[in-house]
Design a protein around this nucleic acid. Structure first.
Lengths: 230, 230
DNA sequence: TAATAGTTAAATACGGTATATCGCTATGAG
DNA sequence: CTCATAGCGATATACCGTATTTAACTATTA
């Protein structure tokens, strides 16, 4: 390197926008989980200084909100099937699938009200499908009940999945795995019903359990939609 | 201060144990939310150096797990009512009440499998109440479905509560509140069903909605328990 | 064309975090 | 009374989010 070497022309900074920032954050989260998302790393991935992000985003929480809303584009189905039940079922399954693709979503699901445009579009489509089937309050209760179910179910599924991955064992052997701790607990005899459940319970496909529980809840909703409160 | 000053006799360190650590952490979380819990602050509250905690706890996550398990003592009811439906309902409501007392629990609910002794005791009591009502798999599905519901519902309730608190407005005025953002969105006309819902929806007591949705789910479960699958 | 104002990026700084490592010290055993 | 040891605290490392300052470049005006 001598003084005659022409210095690199300074690379014009690539213009940034929220989309690119959110995409980078999602990529990071897909690779290493939510905790791998730091403003510094997001910025680095975009060849920018950390502080540059603050021109487009005012806080890290806001970035998370944007990530969640972005994933909602994967949840909103291309075309809506007509039946209300199918709409609710599809929404639940698509949310689940999106969460399996982006596990970090489980950590954010239900944690904050989702008010982004894509999330609103999902809500809109859902409400539209139920419009007029019963009085508004009943419809809202129906949507919220189903949402509560699949939100909770998805979170639990991911939690279990991570636990299995951490111990490297299937749920069947899970008792032996999670340290002698649980084994010891069960061996105390203080938890006979639980012990029986762990011992005799069939290991069922996660998707199947999800679908079954969902169908139960949908049955319940159907009954209430049919007979709106007096 | 000179070298001749007799140094304070070192105060014998108060002996520590997990219970005291967890209690201090819960106190901090109750006051300032989960994010206010740092190992340093927990230690400070116990007049100890931060590193001292690592003799009793191996990671911060573990501390969170212990906190969650501790709160489960508030969830396990003193005496069990006999009816399975009452048992499930009570568990849901007690979980909700515990979360209202310790809002940070909402951030942890369903995030990790709960394997502590108190949580296991809660599970045990629940399973015991449903034992024999149907084949084991159906019983497990029932418990998991109800748990998924109330987990999701509680999380949403707390999320909304925080949002209201942040804007200082009731849900009724919430649209106007959360910045012009949502208002603008609704004004675009792209979300007619949602707009109608926001406009015409009755503002209902949170506990009432929770109870209603819960009853729906319990109805569904009752139907399945009555007719176990072939 | 020169100078200046305004905008934008970068560097630096601050106060915090979890946790690994390691030297000291006080306690109890012999 | 000495010595081994366990437990504690200080220190060190490597991050973090974000405020503030500085530098660089652009565009405008004289």
């Amino acid at each position: 390197m001598t003084v005659w070497d022409r210095p690199e022309p300074p690379t014009r900074p690539v213009p940034l926008d929220r989309e690119r920032i959110v995409a980078a954050a999602i990529a990071l989260a897909d690779e290493g989980g939510l905790e791998a998302v730091s403003l510094r790393k997001v910025a680095a991935r975009l060849d920018a200084g950390p502080m540059r992000l603050y021109g487009y985003i005012s806080t890290k929480e806001e970035l998370f909100d944007l990530m969640v809303d972005e994933v909602h584009t994967e949840i909103l189905p291309a075309e809506q099937p007509g039946d209300w039940r199918e709409v609710l079922r599809t929404r639940a399954h698509r949310t689940r699938q999106a969460t399996l693709r982006h596990e970090w979503l489980a950590d954010l699901l239900g944690g904050r009200p989702t008010l982004g445009p894509n999330a609103l579009a999902v809500t809109e489509a859902t409400l539209a499908a139920l419009d007029g089937l019963a009085d508004l309050d009943t419809v809202l209760r129906a949507v919220e009940t189903v949402s509560a179910y699949f939100t909770g179910a998805i979170r639990r599924e991911i939690a279990n999945l991570r636990a299995e991955r951490a111990t490297g064992l299937s749920k069947r052997d899970w008792q032996r795995a999670s340290g002698p701790h649980v084994m010891r607990m069960l061996a105390t005899g203080r938890f006979p019903a639980l012990a029986k459940a762990v011992h005799d319970g069939t290991e069922m496909d996660a998707e199947a359990s999800f679908a079954t529980g969902l169908d139960w809840v949908l049955d319940a909703v159907a009954a209430k939609l049919a007979r709106p409160p007096a």
